[in-house]
Design a binder for these strands. Sequence first.
DNA 1: CTGAAAGCGCTAACAC
DNA 2: GTGTTAGCGCTTTCAG
Lengths: 338, 338
Amino acid sequence: MKKVTIKDVAAQLGVSVSTISRAFNDKYDIKKETRERIMAQAKELGYNPNPIAQKLQQNKTNNIGVVVPEFRNAFFPDVITGIQDILIPKGYQVLIMQSNENAETELGNVKTLYNNMVDGLIISFSADTQKVNYYKDLLEKDFPIVQFNRIIDKLQTPKVVLDDYAWAFMATEHLILQGYKNIVHFKGPKFLSFSLARLKGFKDAMHKHKLLCCDAQIIDVHGLDINDGKQGMQMLIDKKQLPDAIFAVNDPVALGAMMVMKANNIEIPDEIGIVGFSESRLSDVIEPSLTTIKQPTFEMGQTAAKLLLQELESGIRVSQRIKLSGSFKIKQSSVRLR
Amino acid sequence: MKKVTIKDVAAQLGVSVSTISRAFNDKYDIKKETRERIMAQAKELGYNPNPIAQKLQQNKTNNIGVVVPEFRNAFFPDVITGIQDILIPKGYQVLIMQSNENAETELGNVKTLYNNMVDGLIISFSADTQKVNYYKDLLEKDFPIVQFNRIIDKLQTPKVVLDDYAWAFMATEHLILQGYKNIVHFKGPKFLSFSLARLKGFKDAMHKHKLLCCDAQIIDVHGLDINDGKQGMQMLIDKKQLPDAIFAVNDPVALGAMMVMKANNIEIPDEIGIVGFSESRLSDVIEPSLTTIKQPTFEMGQTAAKLLLQELESGIRVSQRIKLSGSFKIKQSSVRLR
DNA sequence: CTGAAAGCGCTAACAC
DNA sequence: GTGTTAGCGCTTTCAG
């Protein structure tokens, strides 16, 4: 597996290595025909500049690290596609790592990526990340980081999020306008910023419409997965405290709740209406189809990538927080036919 | 974003850089206390060896490239997790790229990865990959490649696959034993090895039971996604050629077919039974739940990684083909209550 | 046990 | 226009 190097090409042609180098980085003067001769010979020999050497020399890698908590749901893969859409045409490589919703693995990922000299990082934190000193260190070294979706407020970086508050408010209000009154919120992990925003949106909508919104109506399901939704619903059934509607922190949680309701012959949306968040592929497959908020995943990735690019090119960090807009997909799970 | 280098540490301690280097690669003799002094100082300064420089020097990267067609379904993410499970403890980094089911993007991915000097590649080809000369070139240069799931037979590399033929046979036979007779197969893209294997399993099972298996019973749905299944089913409905059972090349195709059946009030499994392949998360959410073959995704990733490791360590390529076993998940979609 | 020095493949002054 | 040369940060002979 011998690689062809710049020297081989130079030797073959009897020119110096710098000429070869210049031919490949066409910002220098070089005679057109020498250039062509070089390119031809290079092709012949199967020569490609060794990126590792370039990186060492230039102290930059053109690699961007992306760390996400999981990629089992469509959300993160879609965001990543958006990131790639911006970065790849600019000559960047996107290295993806998954933290598996584990703060420790996440830290390991980031360290690996940093030590392998990615030029910057785009990250969505795991649900249990609390310690941020390492990230603060990186920021102090002026290492560019952009956060999206799962952000940590006290880290001074550009951030891209959905307007979770507004959409949670709207989702709740939708349920209220459908005539549901005893509405429960399945809330997400407490360290996640969007959990809090969605919770607040729920509460404010309830208050606006003068509906009861006591502690018993906020159910902490401890996670974001189908099983968490199942457990939350099961608990309500066991306690015989059935609401007439549920606003779930995300789709998988809503799905889990629906599966338990169906197993217990609870009619959706007649007995209990339900709304999810972050449209997943599952929301159309389940019956009845699940009302949900659609996030602009692709655009979120693009935006995060652009912000990073900005910092990379200007060297200046602008810790702005960009709020993206979503859209509301009303389906069967929350619409009572009266 | 200044990085601390080996020189900084050396200067601080008044020793030479080689001593520092030795302290970090403990294969050389070095006085225990100097070593400790060095490590302490390194930690103090926040020094980490620069992997880029190490790579240049050692002409190896400890990076492994993984190229998959997509990661929207759980299948590939799960396999990747298996790959990481083996490779990360061995000190390898796993760089993931997605080809988006596009042979051209795929080739671009592979070139990027190769030029960035990954030590080896684990790949599952896109559905439309046909040209393989570049891959052959790589193999001639003794570049290690392992294929899994979506393999190309003529490429002489280690391969990891499910025993698609056997499981397709079993799935079909299951339908037959349930009393279905007019069974149709929704077949996958023709360039994919598993499409052919599953098709053959279907045909052989039909023949064994002396059931009619003519051309009209093999439906080419042209893809592997929900929409392809929808179109295939819609076509059958339009032509009024309804079978009494369907064996679909994979779960999304089966799902799509089911969605169309349900929209047309076709009872599953009473009017039409259906079996998928490669258990997806969706198979439990849809109603009725979908009978499917579960693939050992995690193990598939592990196996592929181990094969690559073997070649990396020994320098010898063993182009074996490993067939993994799956399991059959019988659910509601294929079981008629009589 | 430790230091000096060469060199991995490339780029970018600096000469000519 | 093109060649020479000094590094980028590290490992690894070769001396001592």
